Amino acid sequence: MIIEKYLEEYEIGASRMTAGRTITEADIVLHAGQTGDFYPHHVDAQWCATQPFKQRIAHGTLVFSVGIGMTTGVMNPRGMSYGYDRLRFIKPVFIGDTVRVRTTVKETRPHKTPSHGMLVELVEILNQNDQVVIACEHLTIMERKPAES
């Protein structure tokens, strides 16, 4: 879906929620192969059985990537992603967990270019129990409303 909003049209506290997506063993195997991260917490079921969680844990970077991808169903051509701040892996995600993403407008602030501003959104990836598993801030450089002539 495409929406066209200027920075001033975003309401602090407004939020949206994505649908869910289940994390699979295939997700973990593919991510390990793509990144080279074969840390045993992710790929060694036998070793994990001896550890406190008793099962493999999805890579934090995998869950982050999946979650951010889930939010891309809404696109605003007036904005461009500037990146992510304050990324935290709060709780583990396991094979079979279903995640969804809540995005909440946190603040708007000036940008060095007067025709643009910065939109800051809180991104929270939640598991099937509504527990936040990953949180971060998404920074988007947004076009400001043109001055009235």
Rank of each mutant, 00 (worst) to 15 (best):
M1V: 02
I2A: 03
I3T: 11
I3M: 12
E4M: 13
K5M: 11
Y6E: 08
L7K: 12
E8N: 14
E8Y: 10
E11P: 04
I12A: 10
G13Q: 02
G13D: 01
S15C: 12
M17R: 15
G20R: 09
G20M: 09
G20T: 13
I23K: 01
E25V: 07
D27L: 01
D27K: 12
L30Q: 06
L30S: 04
H31R: 00
A32M: 02
A32L: 04
A32N: 03
Q34R: 06
T35N: 04
T35P: 05
G36S: 06
D37A: 08
D37K: 04
F38A: 03
F38E: 00
Y39W: 03
Y39A: 12
P40R: 11
V43F: 10
D44N: 07
D44A: 03
Q46I: 13
W47T: 00
C48E: 01
Q51S: 06
P52N: 01
P52C: 05
K54C: 05
K54D: 01
Q55C: 03
Q55V: 08
R56T: 07
R56S: 00
S65M: 05
V66D: 01
G67S: 00
I68T: 05
I68F: 00
I68V: 09
G69P: 04
M70R: 03
T71K: 11
T72G: 15
V74K: 14
P77G: 09
R78N: 15
G79R: 09
G79P: 01
M80D: 02
Y82V: 09
G83F: 05
Y84T: 05
D85H: 09
L87D: 02
L87R: 06
R88C: 08
I90F: 12
V99W: 00
V99Y: 06
V99I: 15
R100T: 07
R100F: 08
V101I: 04
V101Y: 01
T103L: 06
T103K: 10
K106H: 10
K106A: 03
E107D: 02
T113Q: 07
T113P: 01
H116L: 14
G117Q: 06
G117H: 10
G117W: 08
M118S: 14
M118R: 12
M118T: 15
L119S: 05
L119I: 14
E121W: 13
V123I: 15
E124T: 12
E124H: 11
L126W: 03
L126V: 09
N129G: 08
N129V: 14
D130C: 09
D130R: 12
D130F: 09
Q131W: 14
Q131D: 15
V132Q: 10
V132K: 15
I134A: 04
A135T: 15
A135H: 10
E137V: 09
H138T: 11
T140Y: 04
I141F: 07
I141Q: 03
M142N: 03
R144T: 05
K145H: 10
K145S: 05
P146N: 00
S149E: 09
S149G: 12
S149T: 13
